[in-house]
Design a protein around this nucleic acid. Structure first.
Lengths: 208, 208
DNA sequence: GGTAAAGTTGATCGAACGACAAAGAAGTTC
DNA sequence: GAACTTCTTTGTCGTTCGATCAACTTTACC
């Protein structure tokens, strides 16, 4: 780490956090470099020098997002003892994160760029891949439940259940962005969990 | 309808349909007037003369969307004999519409502008209002089920159930945009409907 | 202190944005 | 066919987009 030359006067992590809040609120295309430069307190040229292009900056922002807002739901999946508790805790942790008073509502992964101009196709695909990872993570957790013995669903339906709870998470984000509060999301989660026993203990109701 | 003057050489309905497909695919901000003019086969000045501003055009497009793609799910809610059948048919009609091979995947109402630049706030609020109408329509259908006698849920939980199925619809749109096919959405719908009996016939499981 | 390295500033690039004005073209009514 | 109305084309308005360059400043190393 050669410390030659003039050190930068701003803290990259702090600036990245400011960029995160802006991208979260307005989405990828809705946030201009002028907006970013103003919020980060530096000139656009400094953004390019430190972070690369707008797309590079966005990818770094998403990495920060994953290690901050994305961590509680992932930890819930990881640490809860049973698959059912893991899914339930993951949904509640998600609801917590997407209705915090100090950040924009809704999940950035879902809201930042579901559609957009053709020239930003790479960004959309990047986010779509991350969403697919979410599905895989949930699926893996269900499979672990089968291994651990706390879940006895037929393997064929694990895909369906995983996709179902992924769908709920994604729907919750739209709800949060539209103004639903934490209690309303909790009620939705209760409904979503009501399906669990039906899906995992009633062989007379095949799901796929 | 005075037919004075030169009649226009393009069909507004056909042009509106072209605009719909483009807005659907790329979202509001992701679609430029150049894109629209090219797809509609007319100059941008003709767009302004016939439809007003870009925002006016988008609102007209959304009206067309509501009477075309939005109609099957609404009709399902209206015409099915019981609340349960209505919700189930609505979900399936939605899945049909958002995975059609001849249109973009996912619901335009949800994907076109969940986030965006501050200057397009009015458009986002316009769409948010339409999404709220979706919730209200579902809630009304559940209330009708209570009136008709085919649904015995306590009134307090009707809000939660309506919001739950609204959440599922919105999640399905993200799934469809991410490439999930009709069969995968059907599996999700089966999971979502598995919660129904739990929510409407088990007073030991309050949902709100 | 001299010099090299890195950061910041301010100006500016070409392109695209939404929007509109003017003028010509094409039709209808009298 | 004359007068009038409306549409379409062409061009361009001012702005903003993402991105970059040259000049200046500030620091570290020798």
């Amino acid at each position: 780490m050669a410390a030659r030359g003039r050190p930068r006067t701003f803290d990259p992590d702090t600036a990245l956090r400011k960029a995160l809040d802006l991208f979260w609120e307005r989405g990828y295309e809705g946030t201009s470099l002028n907006d970013l430069a103003q919020a980060m307190g530096i000139a656009s040229a400094s953004i390019y020098a430190c972070f690369g292009s707008k797309e590079d900056l966005f990818r770094k922002v998403m990495a920060l997002y994953g290690t901050t807002s994305g961590e509680p739901p992932r930890r819930a999946l990881r640490e809860q003892p049973t698959a059912r508790a893991a899914i339930h805790a993951m949904l509640r942790a998600t609801a917590d994160e997407i209705t915090r008073p100090d950040t924009p509502h809704g999940c950035m992964l879902i809201l930042a760029a579901p559609t957009g101009a053709v020239e930003n196709h790479a960004v959309r695909e990047f986010l779509a891949d991350l969403r697919h990872d979410m599905l895989s993570t949930i699926k893996d957790r269900l499979a672990r439940g089968v291994t651990d013995g706390d879940l006895t669903a037929p393997p064929a339906s694990l895909d369906a259940i995983a996709r179902y709870y992924t769908t709920v998470v994604q729907g919750l984000s739209v709800q949060a962005r539209d103004g639903a509060d934490r209690a309303e999301l909790e009620a939705v989660i209760t409904c979503a969990m009501a399906a669990w026993d039906m899906l995992t203990s009633a062989p007379s109701h095949p799901v796929s």
